[in-house]
Amino acid sequence: MTHNLRADTIAITGNDGDEIEAYLAVPTDVERCGSIVVIHHMPGYDEATKEITRKFAAHGYAALMPNLYHREAPGAAPDDAAAVARANGGVPDDRLVGDVAGAVAHLKSLPSSNGKVASIGYCSGGRQSLLVGCRLPLDAVIDCYGAFAVVDSPAESPVRARAVVGEVGNLRGPVLGLFGAEDQYPSPEQTRVLADALSAAGKEFTFRTFEGAGHAFFNVDRPSYRPESATEGWREVFAFLDRTVA
């Protein structure tokens, strides 16, 4: 079934006590529910990721997407804000963790919260979802084709992302990873390295690598969209949330 929902742009307290913009979608016909923080991709706090946020509410979860580029360009169009963030070197990891911690606190303060919170991120957000799972007390983590989880991004680029694999021993909840077999960042070999690290750390995880799919196969408005992989991926996501935070 799908739920009735309400979606609003709100302000939350992020890293260092900063007030940042966020998009909140909540089911309105449930008394208690689990929650999820949605981490947007590098192109930003955009319409497509807001639609994803609402989809979680329609499936019975309170979902909150912080605008990770709010400080760079408050009130700007998402693509303009993303351009500023990139030119400034991207989102620092510590600031990201602080912003997601603020989102988690906000979700837990909702009257409908059952106290459990997951994270999900796409593309650059996939790595960031894994990172926050290592540094915050999250009950579950979903990584959708996050690059640079096991290797650092190119050293010569001013936009940096450092590998997260060394921190996976700190994960407190299970991990769901969804990847494309034709993706090179992360490549199937890199996801195997991540899986080996999770196994070595004794962490519970489920990885699915979809044949015929590359990067960003969930993006319905982009040529990378692969309907069969995305449909099956969404089924995996909701089955995972049902057993971890519902």
Binding site: A76, D80, G214, P223
Partner: peptide, 28 residues
């Protein structure tokens, strides 16, 4: 800023992108 990454509008998974900006005049 010149980069090769996911475009917002161009119909491809990746593209060469150029942002010519005036940071002092705002994101737009």
């Amino acid at each position: 800023t010149v980069y090769f990454d996911h475009p917002v509008h161009f119909a491809a998974g990746h593209a060469l992108m150029v942002d010519v900006r005036n940071p002092e005049a705002g994101a737009a």
